[in-house]
């Protein structure tokens, strides 16, 4: 049985419960055991711009929690993945490890950190997921959005391909939906600049929303709560700023996968999505 410590971070457990819910339910369906990380805090990423070393220490404390229960970590947020992965690598350096020990932390057992979706791709695999699909999402056009810290920096991950990413496309395709290929697939959602310049952030989000509209997609598949804030929560603002209409649902990938595995709308928390996916669901029942 695949068993992992699940790291939730700040946003997911409070603002994106439907992501968490669908991920947990998908895990159950696929025979994955997710163990709680009691005492887990913010990953540390918000501190990086202020002081990278302090951010790494906060991240490393979270890793030490998983280390104590000897479980590899899976995360739901791209930025948490990057921050924790960085700390995990730094823990193997003499210099950082001594600072880490100085604040009274320990790292008794080597653990890996990966994004939940990467874990699905690597440990469960496309074939096995395909076998578990009961209600293929035939007829849906889904636009995969990878987000930045899912595969970048490659130095940290060595996973997928930073120029031509394909793992999420494959994971979308295996649900039976069509994964839309489009230019600027690697473009950032703008989430990181939301706090600095909202207008600019919306501009960045709008770029992909407009591509989604051009391609007539049924939904955007996201794997990061930040990206979803930009594409879903701020979709109205983008519509206002650019005088257009989108109404494009933004689903977390585990929600889509859950539907294809036969989970019902409640089990994947569909009602918590701000932009309703009624027309998409209608297509499925037809």
């Amino acid at each position: 049985m695949n068993k992992y410590a699940i790291f939730l971070g700040c946003t997911v457990p409070v603002r994106a419960q439907h992501y968490e819910l669908s991920a947990r339910n998908v895990a159950k369906e696929l025979g994955i055991d997710l163990v709680e990380m009691s005492g887990a805090s913010c990953c540390g990423f918000p501190l990086k711009a202020v002081d990278a070393e302090t951010a790494l220490l906060v991240a490393a404390r979270n890793i030490s929690l998983a280390s104590k229960i000897k479980l590899d970590v899976v995360t739901l947020c791209n930025s948490c993945t990057a921050m924790l992965s960085d700390a995990q690598i730094q823990l193997n350096t003499e210099e950082f490890h001594s600072k880490f020990k100085k604040v009274g932390l320990s790292y008794p057992h080597e653990v890996r950190v990966r994004h939940f979706v990467r874990m699905l791709y690597e440990d469960i695999g496309i074939d096995k997921i395909g076998e578990a699909v009961k209600k293929p999402l035939n007829g849906l056009k889904i636009m995969p959005h990878y987000g930045c810290h899912y595969m970048r920096p490659s130095q940290l991950y060595g996973f997928d391909n930073t120029e031509t990413p394909h793992t999420l496309d494959e994971l979308v395709s295996v649900t039976g939906a069509e994964s839309v290929n489009y230019a600027d697939k690697k473009m950032c959602c703008g989430g990181s600049v939301l706090g600095v310049d909202e207008e600019l952030a919306i501009k960045m989000a709008n770029h992909k929303l407009s591509i989604a509209k051009e391609n007539g997609v049924d939904a955007i598949a996201s794997i990061c709560p930040f990206c979803t804030v930009m594409y879903e929560d701020n979709q109205r603002k983008a519509e206002a700023q650019f005088e257009t209409q989108y109404g494009i649902p933004v689903l977390y990938y585990p929600q889509l996968l859950g539907l294809s595995l036969g989970l019902d709308a409640n089990a994947v928390g569909l009602k918590f999505n701000r932009i309703k996916s009624d027309s998409m669901m209608e297509k499925l029942t037809r």
Binding site: L8, P13, A40, L47, D51, L57, V58, R61, V103, G269
Partner: peptide
Amino acid sequence: IGLPPIDKTIPEVAKILESTDI
């Protein structure tokens, strides 16, 4: 909706922040 409880606060973070120069 059937999600496990989470900690409201994690005071250990403050300890780390106090230990550095930040």
